[in-house]
């Protein structure tokens, strides 16, 4: 960046950014990496390929994936309703969307567990009518993660829908497109990159979520035990090295997945002329 840049203060701001990122992100994460160097490769593989650890990885990633897919679908609908229609109580719904952001996750977890447990209000209803038990199963984890993820999707999609030019829709209609074609060919492609961002955010949040999940999950090893819980369990047993190995693996997988989503996003934006 040259000296005659129009925005002043490049040096102090980049300095602050580097210091901030180092203190908050890079130093803690590199400590994790250095700590894991105390393990040799065989020990590491031994810890990671443990059956209980592997199944907890499977549980964490599949539930997070399922939850963020479902949250993307419903979050899109919620954002659509909030932007496109005016109805009584709209402001109230608006406030309600952000509620999971503000609520302590443990509180959310306890509430969900109470409602969905087999003797709880919704849990009993679901078992009686559909024969489906939600709590203490992976389904319960998905449930909790959807609750946590929806606002991420709504709040990323909403501004894009708000900004969307309705004249583009009118143009499509005047060219003979049906309502469905207008949505699929004009509205959705314009909103898709934002939806992908919402999906990525909720997926990342879902993989790492702890507080709201552990109460409803039941934490049965091999069935409904998530990776973050396993890390905490290992720490409580003073198995620092085991915890570190799992945490590092988690870090690497999450990083690779987010990279993949970002590349996908880049590809989508490029294809749709937004880059």
């Amino acid at each position: 960046m040259s000296q005659n840049s129009i925005m002043p203060g490049f040096r102090p701001t980049i300095g602050f950014t580097v210091v901030y990122l180092s203190l908050v992100v890079l130093i803690p994460l590199s400590t994790l990496v250095f700590k894991s160097f105390q393990l040799n490769w065989d020990d590491y593989v031994h810890i990671i390929t443990n059956k209980r650890v592997l199944s907890s990885f499977r549980v964490s990633f599949t539930t997070a994936l399922a939850a963020s897919l479902i949250a993307s679908f419903f979050g899109f609908i919620v954002a659509w309703v909030l932007v496109r229609y005016s109805f009584f109580g709209k402001r109230f719904f608006h406030a309600l969307i952000d509620f999971p952001f503000a609520l302590p996750t443990a509180v959310a977890g306890i509430v969900l567990a109470t409602v969905f447990q087999p003797s709880g209000f919704l849990g009993k209803l679901l078992i009686d009518t559909l024969g489906v038990q939600v709590a203490f199963k992976p389904l319960g984890i998905v449930m909790a993660l959807i609750f946590i993820s929806i606002p991420f999707v709504v709040r990323t999609v909403e501004p894009v829908l708000l900004e969307f030019e309705t004249s583009m829709e009118e143009a499509a209609s005047s060219l003979g497109a049906t309502r469905l074609q207008v949505f699929l060919k004009v509205i959705f492609p314009n909103v898709f990159p934002a939806l992908l961002t919402g999906f990525a955010l909720s997926f990342a949040r879902g993989v790492g979520e702890y507080g709201s999940v552990i109460f409803i999950a039941g934490n049965l090893p091999y069935v409904s035990e998530i990776v973050p819980l396993l890390i905490v369990t290992k720490l409580e047993q003073f198995d620092i090295q085991g915890a570190t190995a799992i945490a590092l693996t988690m870090l690497v997988i999450s990083f690779l997945l987010l990279l993949l989503i970002n590349m996908l996003q880049y590809w989508v934006r490029k294809r749709s002329g937004q880059l």
Binding site: E165, M168, S173
Partner: peptide, 22 residues
């Protein structure tokens, strides 16, 4: 008749081109 069935061509003030298409 709905706008899609009227057989008219409409050119918008701010063009309303589809941004995601060539």
């Amino acid at each position: 008749h709905d706008v899609s069935k009227r057989g008219i061509g409409f050119v918008f003030q701010h063009y309303a081109l589809f941004r995601h298409m060539t």
